[in-house]
Computed example of a mutant assay.
Amino acid sequence: MKLKDIARATGVSTATVSRVLSGKDNVSEKMRQKVLQAVEKLNYRPNRAAQSLRSKRSSFIGLIVADIQSPYFASLCRAVEDVALQNNFSVILCNTDENTDKERMYLDMMYAQNAAGIILAPTLSLSEQFTDEHSMETPMVVIDRQVRGSTVDMVLIDNVLAARELTVHVARQGYQRVAGLFGKDSTTGRQRRAGFEQGLHEAGSAVIPELIVDLPAKEEDAHKVMTRLLALAEPPDAVITSSGLLAAGAFRAIRDRELPVPEAIAFATFDESLWTAMTRPSITVVEQPTYAIGQTACEMLFKRIEDPTRPTRQVVLSSKLVVRQSCGALRAATE
């Protein structure tokens, strides 16, 4: 029997169960009685030895991200580790794969092991249902994805603005059928889709529903979707993707068809990586301050650990549009 079993039986979080069992007074009497009744009914027996070992806060922090294979998260993770080591802390890295069950499991693990703090890139589900209770038990900083209805420290970029500027740049090169591939399991993907559609309107281009796809942020999924779009009777003449993994899959599909970029199809994406700069043609990207995001988030977390009562902050860092060869003007427009 574990804390999560009590939490499931009572419909509350593991953090609330932990507060009741540790005798903390920031729980209502009604909720306290509900939890204690479940403890008795389920015959829960806490591990006293483990509780003793955890009586002091651990010297590690948790970093919970969507997918470390993403160039975005890889750079961010490096920054978090650098700052943590400077403060004599270690980092436990967890990948959710945008899976809410995995996310819940890792959060429960961090709470149970009394992590000093958590840096979290929440799934779409948690972003929309986030409450102060999630960060009450353990200091937390949310990165990359904005959460609703909570006062928690966050480090973000303006995804709508960045996507709008990228789309306006592409559309104004003369492309008429601009496709968009967006991660469907995060607020980031939704915000970038919104900016994409705003950018098309601003540039006076058509929003073509059949060319806009929400999909899992995986390379193989992007390859399949892009292959399908290229097989349309009227295929796109440009494509924008919302992440590095989607970019890799989509660009591979274009290479499979041996289509010249940008003459047959223009290409642009979020997330700078080694291949976007080194491939020919080089790829137009929205370069995010990934290291700065991780560094800022970790520094904010340690300040929160030192002073849990300090006012919460939302830091919005600037991205950069890097214009390269993959979105050059259409050949017809230059002749």
Rank of each mutant, 00 (worst) to 15 (best):
D5E: 13
A15G: 12
T16N: 12
T16I: 14
D25C: 01
D25M: 05
A38L: 08
Y44H: 03
Q51T: 00
S52W: 00
S52Y: 02
S55V: 01
S55I: 00
K56A: 12
S58F: 01
S58H: 00
A74M: 05
A79C: 01
D82G: 02
Q86H: 13
Q86M: 13
E98W: 03
T100S: 15
E103R: 04
Y111D: 13
A115C: 12
G117C: 08
Q129I: 01
E133F: 01
I143Q: 10
V147A: 13
N159D: 15
L161M: 11
E165Y: 00
T167V: 13
V168K: 14
A171N: 08
R172V: 02
Q173W: 04
Y175V: 10
A179S: 09
G183Y: 03
K184R: 05
D185H: 13
A194S: 11
L200Q: 07
K224P: 01
L246G: 05
A253W: 01
L259I: 07
A266Y: 00
A266D: 05
A268F: 10
T269Q: 09
W275F: 05
M278T: 10
S282T: 08
A292V: 07
C298G: 10
C298A: 15
D307W: 00
D307V: 09
T309V: 14
R310T: 05
P311Y: 02
V322R: 12
L330V: 08
A332Y: 04
